[in-house]
Design a protein around this nucleic acid. Structure first.
Lengths: 242, 242
DNA sequence: GGTTTAAGCGAACAGCTGTACTCTAATCTA
DNA sequence: TAGATTAGAGTACAGCTGTTCGCTTAAACC
C-alpha cells in the first residue's frame, strides 16, 4: 500500500484505484476528485462502447480504449491498474444493471402478471436493450480470467437467490429445494438470452414461448418431485427400463 | 477457385484447404499428400495443446501455434486459410468427440442404467477428461465469430436432437414436445459442465446430484405439463397471484 | 503565496503480430 | 529422366501492443 503525505491509495476488489483522504474530510469531491471520477467514467463508457458481437472485452487493447476515450494511453494507469481491473468494473456495473432489472420484473409480477411469463419477457427486453452488457457477462462467464468468471458467477448467484426466495415464499417447499429449481430456471433464461442475440425479432418471440414452456415444466415438475410421486405413475422417462 | 494443371484447390466449410485430384486417382495418398495430412494434424494438435483455462482460442496467435507445432509461421498457410479456419476445424473435431460420447452414454443406458444419471455422469466424465475440448465449445458458443457460434450451436443441436429422439421413443409425447424438453436438459447439463471446470472433485459430485435433480424435475414436469393438469392443483408458483 | 500533489501527455522502447515474397528440396507426372 | 508442382523455410516489413520515464500544468494544501 502506497502512502504519501495525506493521501492513501488502496485498491478495491475490482483493482481500481481509490483515493481515500485519511483525514476524513467531510466535503470530499473537490475539483480534482470530480474530474478524475469523470474521466474514469469516460474510460468505462469507451470500453462498453467498443463491445459488440464481433468484439469481446478480451480483444480490446488498452490503447483502443484510451483512443476511444480521447485520453493518452499512459493516463489509463491513473485510473486502473490494468485492463483486467477495468474489466472487473464493467462486470460489476453489468451485474448492477441486471439486479435493477430483477426489481423491475418483481414489480410487474406484484402488479398482477404471470410470474414466469413476466420474468422471461422482462429478461429478454433487457437482453435486447443491453446486448453488449449481456454479451460481456455471457462471455466472461467462461473467459480466461478466473476473477472474471467468479465475478459473473456471483452476479448470477444473486439473481438466482432472489428468484429462489420468491419461489419459496410462494410454494413453501424449503429454501434448499427452491435454490435448485431457481438455479435451473436462471440457467435456462440466461441461455435463451444468449440464443436470442443471433436471432431476428420473430425468432425471439418463438424462443420466449419455448423458454416459458421449459420453465413451466420445471415449475410443475418441482411440485411433483417434491411430493415424491415420481414412482407413482406420473413420471416421464427417468425410470424407464429398456 | 484456383485451378492449376492437374489439381484443384477448394475449401470446405471449415476453410481448410483440400487437395482434390481431378482425375480421381484411386490410390490417392501419395507420399506428399500423406505428409501434408500429417503436419496438418500437428497443427491441430498444437492448437488443442495450447488451450487451457487461461488461454482461449481467440488469444492464440498464428505464430504461437506454428511454434508449438515446430513449423515456420509462413507454412501455416499451406494448410489453413487463416486462424479462423483452424478454429472451425477444432470445433468440428470437438463436436465429433461429443457425439461419440453420446453413443457411449446410450450404450450404458441400454445395458440397464438410469437414463438421467447415466447421461449426466457420462457427460461429466467427458468434461473432466477433455477439459480443453469442452472449454473450446463453451467459449466459442458466445465468441466473436458468427461462424464459430453457428458451428457450436449445430453441435449442441445434434446432441439435443438425439436426446429428443430417445425421450420421444420412450414417452411418445410427440417430437415437438420432446425437443423442447431435451433442449432444456442439454442446456442444464452443458451448464453443469461449465461450472464443474472451476470445481474440486468433491464439489463436482454435489453438482452432479443437483443436476440430476433438475433433470428429474424437467422429466416429471414434462409428464404433468403434457397432461395439461397445470390448472388442476398440481402446480407450483406459475399460476400464483399475489 | 509558496509548496506539495497528482492527472495527463509525449517520446521512446522492446516485443509481438500477420503476411508478402523468394528460394529450396522433394515429390509427382508425363 | 526431364519438367512441373508444391510443402516448407527464411527474410523482411509495417503495424500494433503494454509500459517506463520525465515533463507540464492545475488543483489542493499549509
Amino acid at each position: 500500500m502506497l502512502q504519501i503525505a495525506y493521501t492513501c491509495y488502496t485498491m478495491d476488489n475490482t483493482g481500481a484505484w481509490n483515493l481515500e483522504d485519511k483525514r476524513q474530510v467531510g466535503k470530499m469531491g473537490g475539483d480534482r476528485a470530480r474530474k478524475k471520477e469523470q474521466t474514469r467514467r469516460v474510460l468505462i463508457d469507451a470500453a462498453f462502447q467498443q463491445l459488440s458481437a464481433e468484439r469481446s472485452f478480451a480483444s480490446l487493447s488498452l490503447r483502443e480504449v484510451t483512443r476511444e476515450a480521447g485520453i493518452a494511453p499512459t493516463s489509463f494507469y491513473r485510473h486502473f491498474q490494468n485492463m483486467e481491473a477495468l474489466g472487473l468494473t464493467l462486470v460489476d456495473e453489468s451485474g448492477l444493471t441486471l439486479r435493477q432489472l430483477m426489481r423491475q420484473a418483481r414489480q410487474r409480477i406484484e402488479s398482477g402478471g404471470s410470474a414466469i411469463r413476466t420474468s422471461v419477457e422482462t429478461f429478454m427486453e433487457f437482453v435486447s436493450e443491453n446486448e453488449n452488457v449481456f454479451r460481456l457477462l455471457l462471455r466472461e462467464r467462461s473467459g480466461t480470467s478466473r476473477d472474471f468468471r467468479a465475478a459473473v458467477a456471483r452476479e448470477i448467484a444473486f439473481f438466482s437467490l432472489e428468484l429462489a426466495d420468491y419461489i419459496d415464499s410462494v410454494t413453501q417447499r424449503g429454501q434448499e429445494f427452491s435454490r435448485v429449481q431457481a438455479d435451473a430456471m436462471v440457467i435456462l433464461v440466461f441461455n435463451a438470452g444468449a440464443e436470442a442475440l443471433d436471432m431476428s425479432k420473430a425468432q425471439r418471440k418463438t424462443l420466449v414461448e419455448k423458454t416459458i414452456r421449459q420453465l413451466r415444466m420445471l415449475d410443475a415438475g418441482g411440485a411433483i418431485y417434491m411430493k415424491r410421486s415420481l414412482n407413482r405413475g406420473i413420471s416421464g422417462f427417468a425410470n424407464y427400463r429398456p
